[in-house]
Amino acid sequence: MNVDDANDQARFAEVFLPHLVDAFRLARWLAGSRADAEDIVQEASMRAFKSIRGFSGGHPRAWVLTIVRNTSYSWLAKNRPAALVLTEDLDSRARERLEQTAASEDPQTPEAALIAKTEAAEVRKAMASLPALFREVLVLREIHELDYRAIAEIAQVPIGTVMSRLARARRLLIAAMQGGAA
């Protein structure tokens, strides 16, 4: 191994490895399973390594998450094409559920109390029912605690799109949780 390679590996260890858990969590919610997420993180790490010299030293976490995000979508396209719905249109089932919950909204049952009572397994199920683009903004916002600007950078969309996706994702998730609890 030459000196350049050694430097690259050292830089990779410094930039990528501290964000391994974050990388895993994003991949896990985009891919749907832990095993797939670990495959994706491995592949993302290869990509990150190859382009480590191009990393300018900005925000390593955002850089890592961008690579993981892109790797997740290409991995899904290749290995789980059926799971990859890269559209913001809801399928008919989700739309129906949304309309039903809107119609049956009970003013006596505050949504917040209902959500607080929802079991972890139901939360996961509701999350899994969302299209990937909505899961993505939710995970980046709520799990990674990133602000709109950072999410826009990682998802490669304007901030306005982040805002509308996030608003919609939350509305959908609340509806799915109410559907599950009812």
């Binding site: 490895l17 919610w29 917040a112 607080a116 939360v123 996961r124 999350m127 939350r170």
Partner: peptide, 28 residues
């Protein structure tokens, strides 16, 4: 309030996911 409850639910239920302990080793 609903959105705050949602955040708490997501953080407590999804925020605990960690990769298997040897992922770092496998990556390297």
């Amino acid at each position: 309030e609903a959105r705050r409850a949602l955040r708490n639910a997501l953080r407590s239920d999804l925020g605990e996911d960690v990769p298997s302990p040897d992922l770092r080793r496998r990556v390297m």
